[in-house]
Computed example of a mutant assay.
Amino acid sequence: MPRTTGRVSAAFLEAGGETRLGDRYHAYPLKIAKAFPFDDGQLGVYVMDASPGIMSGDRYELDWHFGENTKVYVTNQSYTKVHPVLRSADGSLADQASVQRQTLTLARGSVVEYMPEPLMLYKDAYFYSETEVRMEPGSVLILSETVCPGRTQRGELFQYGLYRSELKVTFGSELIFCAKQRVEPSSPTQKLDAIGAWGPFTHYGALYVFSEQVDAGFADRVRDYLNRLLGVDEETAVPFSGMKLYSGVSRTYKYGLVVSVMGFKVYEIQQLLEAIWKFIRRTYFVDTDIQIRK
């Protein structure tokens, strides 16, 4: 089966207080399906995948450039679905793992919210994900990710072959964050149900915030709000108190924090991360809420 290389390349610019989509390029099966303005000059962008998902050996490349003082919200229309890998006659992978590489370049004063739908790893999927972020001083990035263990309604639970991900963030010329993850459920050396790994949980989500405004006080306020949402030390019920979620807030080396959530249902993780995201954007970066319809 021939490989498919899907590409998206887009540059954004600010003009008269409004963010506009400038130069753009896309190659099947990826495309920028729609761009739509919000009331405060922010621009929203949908990325569409015209195929059933990332097939064996496919390679997706997304390159984003956010100009000075731009405000952009990026999402996709549906889950990123990674299909099973094809093997050679001898059973080897024959270099057929699926790959997605993303590059985000943020100029001074830009505010970017990069909020894709969850990643769904099918049985026997092999997927490599690499995201590189380059930020200039004064820029802000809010980035989310959610990972599902498979099509649980079909009985798939950590039946994928390999998931390898890397996120690297450079601020100015300084590397401020680098996270690498390799999950190989069938490996005898990986015990996913152990303490320090997934434990009893099946789904994972994270919200990353990178900005010069992120300091110890910023993290404390986010942590306090998270605890209120979950009903920690509260006698009255709150929206998320009945959900089986395990979460925490941690600071990165510099200018960043990560809200991590583990649970059993992807929609519960999404709802909690959305509440945290809205709190952060409204408190620190953007005065108004936005409604995203899909």
Rank of each mutant, 00 (worst) to 15 (best):
P188T: 09
T202R: 06
Y284W: 15
E212A: 04
T202Y: 08
P200N: 08
Y284N: 07
G248C: 15
Q190Y: 06
L245P: 04
T170E: 12
G217F: 07
Y253P: 00
F264V: 02
P200R: 10
K191C: 14
P185T: 06
D233A: 12
V183G: 02
T236G: 11
L245G: 00
L229R: 02
Y255P: 02
V209E: 01
V238F: 06
E235S: 11
L229E: 07
S260R: 15
D287E: 12
P239R: 04
E212D: 15
R223L: 12
I280P: 03
G242L: 10
V222L: 03
V209H: 02
L273D: 07
Q190M: 13
R228H: 10
G205N: 02
R221Y: 06
T252N: 00
Y267E: 15
L226Q: 00
V209N: 04
V209Q: 03
A194F: 12
A206Y: 07
S173M: 14
R182K: 10
Y267S: 14
K254R: 08
K265V: 13
Q181D: 00
D233Q: 13
Q213M: 13
Y208R: 05
P239D: 10
K180R: 14
S241M: 05
L272F: 04
T170G: 07
L257W: 01
W198E: 10
F210W: 02
N227F: 05
A275Q: 06
E166P: 02
S173V: 15
V209G: 02
S165V: 06
H203M: 02
F177Q: 01
R251P: 02
V169E: 01
E235D: 15
G248R: 13
G242P: 04
P188G: 07
D224Q: 03
F240N: 03
E234Y: 13
Y208D: 06
K278A: 15
W198S: 09
L273F: 05
Y246P: 01
E274H: 14
L167G: 02
